[in-house]
């Protein structure tokens, strides 16, 4: 029914072809209208999205805190947490954030090799963090803590699991960008792509800052 009733509008298809044809003349640099704020729309949208993500992780953290100390069977946090190990992985993630700002800085300065190096460093540090997490998860599993063991297991794995999934997405994203940079498709002119991926990475990092303090150190 939809198409028939609204068929009045179909006459505009030709009109659209015309517009596209006009645009095709300028194909290499399509004219995008200037924005009301003068800012890049992708960057604004991404900050809005990160605002939304704060509520996602805020809710997960609140669930963890509400259920803290309510497990009816063990293992309990103090039985399994390995603070020195997690401190190292926290340090690794913090340093990866430093790598992000350096990579972006060098990309903008046109220093391709340094930008490639630091982008690879983000990926390596991120993968290291994931390795620590994989080790931690399997270790917990071996001492008898799973998703379904108790409320601690449920809340811990879901919270850190969602965080780990975000890190994984970040690693894949940066790998794609690294390949583009290597092939010369990511250049100072479009460094915004790396900037946005970097914002995402920092966001994942600040979520971990909260998790490390609220979940590990305040056990």
């Amino acid at each position: 029914m939809g198409v028939g009733v609204w068929g009045v509008r179909s006459g505009q298809t030709i009109h659209k072809e015309l517009i596209l044809a006009t645009a095709a003349v300028e194909h290499h640099h399509p004219v995008h209208p200037p924005t009301a704020t003068g800012l890049n729309t992708w960057k604004v949208g991404f900050w809005v999205f990160m605002g939304s993500e704060t509520l996602f992780f805020g809710s997960l953290i609140s669930i963890y805190l509400v259920y803290k100390g309510t497990s009816v069977v063990g293992p309990y946090p103090s039985d399994v947490f390995d603070i020195p190990l997690t401190t190292v992985s926290t340090f690794v993630l913090l340093m990866s954030s430093l790598a992000v700002v350096l990579a972006l800085d060098f990309l903008r300065a046109g220093r391709r090799n340094l930008a490639l190096f630091w982008t690879m460093m983000i990926i390596v540090l991120g993968a290291t963090f994931l390795g620590f997490q994989a080790y931690e998860f399997t270790h917990f599993y071996h001492v008898g803590l799973t998703l379904s063991t108790n409320l601690f297991g449920s809340t811990f794995f879901v919270l850190t699991g969602f965080h780990g999934a975000h890190v994984t997405i970040g690693v894949i994203w940066l790998l794609i960008l690294w390949v583009d940079m290597f092939r010369g498709k990511l250049r100072p002119e479009n460094s915004l792509r790396l900037e946005i991926a970097g914002l995402y990475w920092h966001f994942v990092d600040i979520v971990w800052i909260a998790i490390f303090t609220l979940i590990y150190l305040m056990e």
């Binding site: 669930i63 259920y67 497990s71 379904s148 108790n150 409320l151 297991g153 449920s154 809340t155 879901v158």
Partner: peptide
């Protein structure tokens, strides 16, 4: 998981 399973302390 046990989030809303009362036997496991879920609320």
């Amino acid at each position: 998981t046990n989030f809303f399973v009362m036997q496991s302390g879920g609320d």
